[in-house]
Nucleic acid binder design. Sequence first.
DNA 1: TTGATTTATTGGAACGTTCCATTTAATAGG
DNA 2: CCTATTAAATGGAACGTTCCAATAAATCAA
Lengths: 352, 352
Amino acid sequence: MASRAKATIFDIAREAGVSKSTVSLVLQGSGLIRPETAVKVRKAIEDVGYVYNRGAANLRKAHSNVIGMVINDLTNPFFAELAVGMERVFQSAGIVPFIANTAENPVRQEEVLKSLMEQGVAGLIVSPARGTTPGAFRRLELAGVPVVFAMRRLPESRIPVIAPDNHRGAYLAAAHLIAKGHRRLAFFGGTSDLVVYQERLGGFREACETLGISARDVLVVEGETNRRGGLACLETALTMAEPPTAALCFNDAVAFGVMLALRKRRLEPGPDFAVVGFDDVVEAEHYMPALTSVAVDTAGLGERAAHVMLKLIQSRTTRAEDHIGAVNLVVRESCGPDLRTRNRPTGTRGAA
Amino acid sequence: MASRAKATIFDIAREAGVSKSTVSLVLQGSGLIRPETAVKVRKAIEDVGYVYNRGAANLRKAHSNVIGMVINDLTNPFFAELAVGMERVFQSAGIVPFIANTAENPVRQEEVLKSLMEQGVAGLIVSPARGTTPGAFRRLELAGVPVVFAMRRLPESRIPVIAPDNHRGAYLAAAHLIAKGHRRLAFFGGTSDLVVYQERLGGFREACETLGISARDVLVVEGETNRRGGLACLETALTMAEPPTAALCFNDAVAFGVMLALRKRRLEPGPDFAVVGFDDVVEAEHYMPALTSVAVDTAGLGERAAHVMLKLIQSRTTRAEDHIGAVNLVVRESCGPDLRTRNRPTGTRGAA
DNA sequence: TTGATTTATTGGAACGTTCCATTTAATAGG
DNA sequence: CCTATTAAATGGAACGTTCCAATAAATCAA
């Protein structure tokens, strides 16, 4: 049925008895062609087993319709959720976004960005890898490719950012722990080369200062932003002379790691050590105990990022405003009962 | 520095004082050009801020270097793990794979496949969405684009498949439950339009028959292949007159849902109802209780699929052998103690 | 009928590469 | 010094589209 070599608009034209230009117009859904002609052409398209060559088209057209999503850690369900939010928006705009994973590796990221540029993407939504150098996106800017950062930002970059209110989220979480009666707090996971880290840690510190926790009672342990990092952080913290009794974790993955480490030491997350996460991934609700976490409306941020991208592409510009998403603390069970009432003989708890 | 319009090899040629052909040769790393010339050209490339136009090149070249991964559910960490395995292989081959998500939606899948074809992919690794029609991949075949199925297969398709030994995995799991003393078993989640489902259910049934469980003591509840599906399945099962005491779940996501539903009813996964998952995602180990699951070496299968794809592309063919990966049952805590010794006065359990 | 206008269709140039066939330059053999 | 050989560089055609300007056909106004 279909010939060996792939069919082009010329083959269609011959088959339908029209010119290549007519075929092209039909492909673009132009209203200029007579309906009967269009039908004839469309039939020919089917018959010859034609597949549109977007590369060739992009040679003439100003813009491609490809949008890339560059994600630093696809195995973190948080980013998968983010991706899904974006896809929803792009789908309704008739765009298929391509996702690429950098695995938190700046070198890999460089390759990915290069490849996407060569592919002629119309725009890029990026959650930059840890340790990304400031110049990594210069080429994109020079080429006039719109870029939006999602969730993470770069130190001194003019690229628009869509991210949650990290400072406030961390403040809320720390305030919650303090209100629960904790006096020695820790911040677990993440590294200071991440702007997000500074924001979250900043909010955490501000809460401590404002609410009367002395600086020497707050412990900061840097680490990987995954389960393994959380495990390591807790181990480190427990070697201290006066270990903390509660921790705000950089993200939920770290928090899961901390809970795991507690279990390994036969400590119960909640009663024995309070844990708060950040991101509120779906798993948070389903853990044992359910994780108290800062919810950031992941899918919503993804949608927002996608919308900003579409607007950038349409307006043919590369600048846009940042968007800081609202956050709220979802209190579950991982912080245990109120410490201030813990040792009093209330009798309410003690059955189990 | 860089001009407004994007630079082409002609701009480089002018800058370096050579011809466009020379530039092209340098770009391809041809050994024909004098080293000094190459250096000169490479400098010019930097200076004009050139980005290679792969679309234009593909117009002449036979094959593009883009490989697409089409995945039915990116939020399932299992597929993220699979993707990561593939990426490892492609990376070392200098290829950046593009991932696209179909969200288990055949219509979306059709769009995604079309878009990838138009992009001129060199090959496609696909985990087909549920309800994919047999003809969905005909166009790909006609166009001679190599396709490999990962994890899932289509009823009557000649496309090579990389998948775990589903039948054996399910058999092992069921045998384990039976050895534990369970006599009324259930299979939860998945739908019969999935070949994988038939394979897993087949293994499950065979174990039951072989090991003396009567057919009317096995309950099969179809459902979504995610947490929500698991929840629903358990609810359905518990409405039975003689409900099962153990279930093999279609995958880990379903198993997590089942455990959740048990908790909601104040039942303890393990002692009160045995649960086995399938896939052994990383979370399985970290759940409370840790989930007994059939491990399938996800990343390994991903690597295998990627290798098969590379071979297909090189050999310019479209047929290859299937590859069935080994499986093994990882016993953890979600099946509780041995039922046959449960009611005897051992005294070991009873404290909590 | 004639020219003006509208409606459909068309040929050709252009997009940025690669690759082949040539040309030019450099080197060697006599 | 001339020719044969090798090495290096080049011009032109081709890839499959789009878009513009131009043509052809049909309709309309007078």
